[in-house]
């Protein structure tokens, strides 16, 4: 089956005012099949959000240079005309942002905002759009949606607003849903509700999801496949079970070792020493080399390629498979 979305050799450069060029994303290859959920994991500044903004065509054109290809259902999103992108966004491509407080317009009711999306892409009468909006609010479990639809965003709690955002994203039954840290701003009990809702909706609609998060627990709960990003590159990509049981990149090992877990108590958590490299002058070799405990001299000389470790599991590390190092 051909993937729904396929990203080939995506590179994103930011041109700063001072002439400095930041390499935000480098040679990223990704694909997501219909109905699958891909987790995009990494720490602040690794390029995960920028990648998603590139898919949606939301990066500022004046200061950003995007190369490569993003193929979505026969279109190349990077070459598509603005009009085509506008027809796709909110319709077949939808996105949920982290901050439900700032991503809703405070001066319109939530109903207006959902109805606008439906009318823009589906047309029809305002009355039928309103009915659909109420139905969507019901699907995301907002109590008494007939009444809530006429409320302004400030009347709703954080968890409710995030539900409204999800309802809006689902308004036109998108084929691809990008969720950028959808639960980070929420309390754990609300996070559990939203994650459950996302699972439910995925099962019902069959949409593909790209979930961007820094929380490996969230990834383990909802994703089928995971891509780990570090300093603008994908350093490892694997089916979710394999990533958590046998990671093949030292950065992934460090990340997994550094999270406090409920299912065991470690005396000392693993730490990843040092700093993320300055992406205005990325290092010549492996970008993780300066912080890697398994580093060899060869690592610093040339950038390591992504190598297959097992079917569906790739790692950007010349020392993979890592098991050899500890046996």
């Amino acid at each position: 089956m051909s993937p729904l979305i396929e990203i080939r050799d995506l590179r994103i450069r930011f041109h700063g005012d001072d002439g400095r060029i930041t390499h935000a994303v480098d040679s990223v290859d990704l694909s997501v099949a219909n109905g699958a959920t891909l987790g995009l994991v990494g720490e602040s500044g690794c390029g995960k959000s920028v990648t998603s903004l590139a898919i949606m065509g939301l990066l500022p054109k004046q200061t950003t240079e995007v190369t490569g290809a993003i193929r979505f259902d026969g279109f190349d999103l990077l070459k598509a005309a603005d009009q085509t992108l506008r027809d796709l966004r909110g319709n077949r491509l939808a996105m949920i942002f982290q901050e439900p407080m700032t991503s809703l317009n405070p001066s319109f009711t939530i109903g207006d905002q959902i109805i606008e999306t439906i009318l823009r892409h589906r047309g029809g009468s305002r009355k039928s759009a309103r009915e659909r909006a109420i139905d969507l609010l019901r699907r995301v479990h907002i109590p008494s949606p007939e009444r809530r639809i006429d409320e302004y965003p400030h009347k709703l709690s954080g968890g409710m607003r995030q539900r409204v955002m999800i309802a809006m994203a689902l308004a036109c039954d998108p084929q691809l849903l990008i969720a950028d840290e959808p639960t980070t701003a929420l309390d754990v009990t609300l996070q559990a509700q939203i994650l459950e809702l996302m699972r439910e909706l995925k099962a019902a609609s069959g949409a593909a999801i790209i979930l961007i998060t820094h929380d490996l627990g969230v990834v383990a709960e909802v994703c089928d496949e995971v891509a780990v990003m570090y300093a603008g590159e994908i350093v490892e990509r694997a089916p979710v079970d394999e990533l958590f049981s046998a990671p093949q990149h030292p950065y992934t090992v460090g990340l997994l070792g550094s999270i406090p877990r409920l299912d065991q108590r470690a005396e000392q958590l693993a730490t990843i020493e040092g700093m993320v490299p300055n992406m205005a002058q990325p290092p010549a070799g492996c970008r993780f080399a300066a912080r890697c405990p398994f580093v060899l001299e060869a690592c610093t000389r040339a950038p390591p390629p992504l190598v297959d470790v097992s079917p569906g599991h790739v790692s950007r590390c010349i020392r993979a498979p890592l098991e050899i190092l500890v046996s």
């Binding site: 065991q264 693993a270 040092g274 405990p293 190092l325």
Partner: peptide, 27 residues
């Protein structure tokens, strides 16, 4: 369930921590 790390991961994390010990103090 007190599953924690898989055996392979436990070894890797231990190796990761051992190697970084004695390196520069954090940060």
């Amino acid at each position: 369930a007190a599953a924690g790390f898989s055996p392979a991961l436990a070894k890797l994390v231990a190796a990761f921590s051992r190697k970084t010990e004695g390196a520069n103090p954090a940060g």
